[in-house]
Computed example of a mutant assay.
Amino acid sequence: MDFKSNHHHKNFIDGVPYATVKRLPFYHRFLTDLSKKEVERISSRELAAKMGINPSQLRQDLCYFGSFGQQGYGYRVNDLLREVNRILGLNQEIKMVLVGGGHLGTALANYDNFSRRGFIIKAIFDKNPEVIGGYIKGIPVLDIKELQEYLRVEPVEIGVITTPAEAAQETADRLVQGGVKAIWNFAPVSLKVPEEVLLENMHISESLLLLSFKLKQRRNQPDPV
């Protein structure tokens, strides 16, 4: 995974350590689970243990964003979840377009958790005439040629790329020209985008290769006596 932004030193994002930022989605996941289980409050020690970090690290992480919790009481789960949602920008709807209506694009479009968290895919773009004019999970599939005109009329913040590698850079260029502020790239290629455009790469095959390497290393280790 690769995070790119020009607003800060490479180890910080707007003054917050990148390591802290990377933990925010985990806070969100654990707090959401606790909220669903109707847990009213949790201590920093208990929450830190769930996340595999020490309590002082947890308190330090949260201090970058404000004052949360009470000494001797811990954190109100729903209140802290609401604050983490705000920190992550999940307290408002974020519009997206997806380019590439193949198997991966279809899978992402069908993933309900995006819309539950406020990430709304407004349209899908493809060049395949067999899918253009149809719908995926109620989302219209439009001709890729219409992308920039669509973005002019219906601005969105995030463009999702699920095209083959050879089409990814041209797709990124079109998204940038259409005013998209951030790109979530699933194509197995390194993209070039302007400094002001945020880029997050999700190279699925690379993750699988790393898992294969770790599996091989484990196979080669002698069994414990």
Rank of each mutant, 00 (worst) to 15 (best):
E170R: 14
S43Y: 03
R82T: 07
K4G: 10
A167S: 15
T106H: 06
I120D: 01
Y75K: 01
R45T: 15
V180M: 02
L215C: 09
R174E: 11
T106N: 04
E146L: 10
D173E: 15
K36G: 07
R117I: 01
H28R: 14
H28V: 05
Y18V: 15
L151T: 10
G178K: 07
P140E: 09
I161N: 13
G134V: 10
T20Q: 08
L208F: 15
K216V: 09
G178P: 01
P164E: 03
A165Y: 06
G159Q: 04
R219M: 14
E83S: 11
R76H: 05
E83Y: 00
I132C: 08
K192D: 14
D223M: 11
A107L: 14
V77W: 03
H8I: 06
E166Y: 13
I161D: 10
L191H: 10
S190A: 09
L34A: 07
I42E: 03
G179N: 00
R219E: 12
V84I: 15
K37L: 12
S190Y: 07
L47A: 06
N6Y: 12
V21R: 04
A107C: 05
Y18R: 15
R76L: 08
H9G: 14
Q177M: 13
R82M: 05
T32S: 15
K181T: 04
D112S: 15
Q71H: 04
R41A: 15
K137C: 12
G69V: 02
E40Y: 09
G100K: 07
E130C: 03
H9W: 14
P129S: 09
D33R: 13
N85L: 00
D2G: 13
V160W: 09
T20D: 11
I158Q: 09
I132G: 11
D126C: 12
L80H: 02
I94S: 06
N6M: 11
K127R: 11
G15E: 05
I158W: 11
L58V: 08
Q169Y: 12
Q57K: 06
L47D: 04
V156M: 08
V16Q: 06
A168N: 07
I161V: 13
L62M: 02
D33N: 10
M96N: 00
L98A: 01
A165C: 07
L47H: 08
I53P: 01
Q169K: 11
V131P: 04
I120R: 07
K127T: 13
L199Q: 02
F213V: 13
L151G: 08
G105H: 12
Y73V: 09
A182W: 00
T20K: 05
I139W: 02
L34C: 03
V193N: 05
N6R: 12
I94G: 00
R86F: 01
S56T: 14
F186A: 01
V99D: 00
R29K: 14
S56V: 13
L31P: 08
E149Y: 10
P194K: 02
N85Y: 06
E40I: 11
D14I: 15
Y111P: 00
Y150T: 13
D61K: 00
R86A: 02
P164W: 07
G105E: 04
V21C: 11
Y73W: 01
L62W: 03
G15F: 05
